[in-house]
Nucleic acid binder design. Structure first.
Lengths: 152, 152
DNA sequence: ACGGATCATTGAAAAAGTCAACGATTGTTT
DNA sequence: AAACAATCGTTGACTTTTTCAATGATCCGT
């Protein structure tokens, strides 16, 4: 039950030119990160994706399911499953769209916000250990670059 | 058949705090990137993963399948499928391990290197368009940060 | 009011991931 | 040297995830 040891082996293959392929770097960091994130979120019955949905639901932005699908790069049917699960557990609610009655707005419940706060704290710790090799500045720099790459 | 238009819409939800969640940023950039990369590689009958395997096979590092699995964060059985496919198409060969006769070393064929060069060129163009919002310096900076985050 | 488009949802089919078992080989212990 | 556990690639079964087409309800432009 002690603090989980983090092995930082630098594999032989990291030397290859492939180590500069942005696509692979993203895939690898995302893969290892997802594993740790999901482990950290498991205590709250969440995974990376349901946590993301819950975060948006808690954001006050009142996202529709379509917006969630677009933003999270998911198929609309996957959003249905995620929201179903969160709704059954009382963490979010489906509300009727305001201008569009086809759309459904996902909003958090009080319990949802409570869980989200705890989960967010756990995830922050988790991500800090993942990016332990980076200084505070570099960490912020990485976020900024990723954002800029995505949305300019 | 003209140059594919790239829509750079900044979605409403990008404003949320979630836009600073490293895990989500990685997931999203990886997701959109994979789509484009796979599309670019399709002309050569490759996908992101088979391309990665081919790259390592062409690197001169003589990786074993176990090393490929570790480096690419894949299950060993997935590597079997990937190598099977590449081998059937004559792009790589399985060679006996030098110190360990259980292990199999993956090396490229001449045809494999030919295809790889073409695919790599196409992928570079593709990645440049993906990271078009970043300057040359920022592009290098991003690579460096990702590498550092992974291997210190 | 009509027709085409979009939203959430369902269900089925395809793809990907996970996992345990196996033979062959290795390294270690006795 | 003999026995033992561990590792490598492989196979096959199983679960999860992804993808896609179809549907009813609703919106929008004409």
């Amino acid at each position: 039950m002690g603090p989980q040891s983090i092995e930082v082996e630098t594999p032989r293959l990291a030397a290859a030119k492939i180590g500069s392929d942005v696509g692979l770097l993203l895939a690898k960091l995302h893969a290892t990160g997802s594993l740790l994130n999901n482990k950290a979120l498991a205590d709250y019955g969440l995974r990376e994706r349901s946590f993301s949905v819950l975060t948006l639901a808690c954001s006050g932005l009142e996202p529709t399911q379509r917006e969630l699908a677009d933003f999270l790069s998911l198929d609309p049917s996957q959003v249905v499953s995620l929201v179903d699960d969160l709704e059954h557990r009382g963490l979010v609610k489906r509300a009727q769209g305001k201008q569009d009655r086809r759309a459904k707005i996902i909003v958090s419940t009080a319990e949802g916000r409570r869980i989200h706060n705890k989960a967010r704290a756990a995830l922050e710790v988790c991500e800090q250990t993942q990016l332990a090799a980076l200084s505070e500045d570099e960490n912020a720099q990485l976020r900024a670059l990723l954002k800029k790459a995505l949305w300019g």
